[in-house]
Amino acid sequence: MQLSDRFTVSDDVVAREVGGETVLLDLSSGQYFGLDTIGGRIWELLSERPHHLSELCDQIETEFDAPRERIEADLMALAKQLQDQELIAADAA
């Protein structure tokens, strides 16, 4: 996985902010997942349209007070988890 990779959210996932966190329900598996504030923001951005990971890093850097290296590392880790769970998928376009 690289920062130039582009991702989109799965059509099988519904999301909702609940009590300051984002809860995801994978309709195909019935499994639930939780995202913290930054994870929820990343999900929101991905839900609007497909994004390159580098674009997401740019956006998160403008909104949250954290070093770029940390944002990139955390975002890559999150994206891998989401992809492994088939909550997001690589977007070829």
């Binding site: 059509d11 099988d12 519904v14 609940v18 009590g19 809860v23 329900l25 309709l27 639930y32 939780g34």
Partner: peptide
């Protein structure tokens, strides 16, 4: 927690069509 509650409540709902995603999203 609110998040736990959501996942605890969902299995006790009555769903007619698990393939109807717009309705499932609204129900969620």
């Amino acid at each position: 927690s609110m998040q736990e509650a959501l996942s605890a409540l969902m299995p006790h709902a009555f769903i007619l069509d698990v393939e109807d995603k717009p309705r499932l999203k609204a129900h969620f």
